[in-house]
Amino acid sequence: MVPTNYLIILSAVLFLIGVAGVLVRRNVLVVYMSIELMLNAANLAFAAFASAFGALDGQIAVFFVMTVAAAEVAVGLAILVTIFRTRQSVDVDSLHQLKG
């Protein structure tokens, strides 16, 4: 069996890759993919802890997180599509109308 420590370190690395992706990438879709990576890193941590504790509640948490992520993506992509219709671009840098 893989030691829990390794799994948690892997999940932390995935989470940090996700954070870096959100901060660095300019395409909104890729930014959202990075956020999904962060959520899935949390899922991995939940599952790893649950198997270490021999408990079920961590695994159930994974289901909740996946469901919420699906709900979020539905709304997020809808917003993205409306933006693409008006601006023909999904680049974060094209969103600069609001400032001051």
């Binding site: 999940s11 989470f15 996700g18 959100v22 909104v28 930014v31 959202y32 956020i35 962060m38 959520l39 890193a41 949390a42 899922n43 941590a45 939940f46 802890f49 509640d57 961590g58 948490a61 997180v65 919420v68 979020e72 709304v75 997020g76 917003i79 993205l80 409306t82 933006i83 008006t86 969103l95 109308q97 609001l98």
Partner: peptide, 26 residues
């Protein structure tokens, strides 16, 4: 639209931090 997308992206970003915090607390 711009406001909505910014709110959505940063809200989802924050939620990911929250979930990871919950996982660590767990």
């Amino acid at each position: 639209e711009e406001a909505a997308l910014k709110y959505f992206l940063l809200g989802a970003f924050a939620a990911a931090f929250l979930v990871y915090g919950i996982a660590m607390t767990y």
